[in-house]
Nucleic acid binder design. Structure first.
Length: 279
DNA sequence: CTTTCGTCCTGACTGC
DNA sequence: TGCAGTCAGGACGAAA
């Protein structure tokens, strides 16, 4: 479930449960995620108080008293669940945290593309997971000129450039498609052909779509997104993603005349766009 | 250096 | 019903 809005939603759900609580149990049940869970995971978390829960790019950072930092990435299929008491453990529950307040947090990831890492709060900015990671799209440092500088000279399709976390952090397949639609830019055009004015519009579109998605609690595909079990509902506001063959909501072309929203494959992933509106 | 492509893994869904 | 094929919100490393 994890692009920036979904990870932000998870972080906001975890905060009231974890911040200030003491972890009375921290169990790694299956270590072989994309990067193996560190063998000392349990020892370094058990008995520690949680200072803060925050997000960087698509990563969840859990800071503990003493300065240790647990880093979670949800991959394609990772989810966090919060339950009161002792829930029955499910298949693919790889991490289980219990707090002194009686809450249980489970990291469930069937495909195991996610990861768990440990670091120190003072060195995390230099952690190799974040090396080269681009600016936070909702931060002040991200704007038209900053995006234009990142796209300059790049001969890769604009879609691929935006999926690259070095260009800007946190976008994934859905929100790249949506932002390109809002900006009226073709996913196929080469990144270096984007003008300063278009970069300005694109940066604004990225901020818009992410803010609206966060406000909606993210997008839920076939399962819930929020740790509480509540559904995000931004999927109902998708303009193009998953809407192949439907009428374009942004221009007067419709499914009958032009085929409406089209699906193509770029970088082995689906791209949805309106060829009429997006140039 | 940049860019593309295959790969990791399980589960849900489609169509025969 | 069963089974094969396809697709999925990500990101890495090898290859070109």
């Amino acid at each position: 479930m994890p692009e920036l809005p979904e990870v932000e939603t998870v972080v906001r759900g975890l905060r009231p449960v974890l911040e200030g609580a003491v972890l009375v149990r921290a169990e790694a049940r299956r270590p072989d995620l994309r990067i193996p869970i560190p063998p000392d995971f349990s020892a370094r978390l058990t008995g520690r108080a949680v200072r803060s829960v925050r997000r960087r790019a698509k990563y969840i950072l859990i800071e503990l008293a003493g300065g240790d930092l647990a880093i979670f990435h949800l991959g394609m299929s990772g989810r966090l669940h919060i339950d009161r008491g002792d829930p029955e453990l499910q298949p693919h529950d790889h991490i289980v945290l219990k707090t002194d307040r009686g809450d249980t947090v489970r990291l469930n990831d069937p495909r195991r593309f996610g990861l768990v890492a440990l670091d120190r709060v003072e060195t995390v900015d230099r952690h190799r997971l974040f090396a080269g990671t681009g600016p936070e799209p909702l931060g002040n440092a991200f704007n038209g000129p900053a995006l234009a500088a990142k796209l300059k000279g790049r001969r890769t399709p604009l879609k691929a450039a935006l999926l690259d976390q070095k260009t800007v952090a946190g976008l994934g397949n859905i929100y790249v498609c949506e932002a390109l639609f809002l900006a009226g830019l073709s996913p196929k055009r080469l990144a270096r052909t984007v003008s300063a004015r278009q970069a300005e519009a694109l940066a604004g579109a990225i901020k818009d779509v992410l803010n609206k998605a966060i406000a909606a609690g993210g997008s839920s595909l076939r399962d819930y997104v929020q740790p509480s079990g509540e559904l995000g509902y931004f999927q109902h506001q998708w303009a193009v993603y998953g809407r192949e063959g439907e009428a374009c909501p942004g221009c007067d072309c419709d499914a009958g005349e032009t085929g409406g929203i089209r699906r193509i494959v770029q970088s082995n992933r689906s791209t949805f766009y309106c060829p009429h509106r997006q140039r």
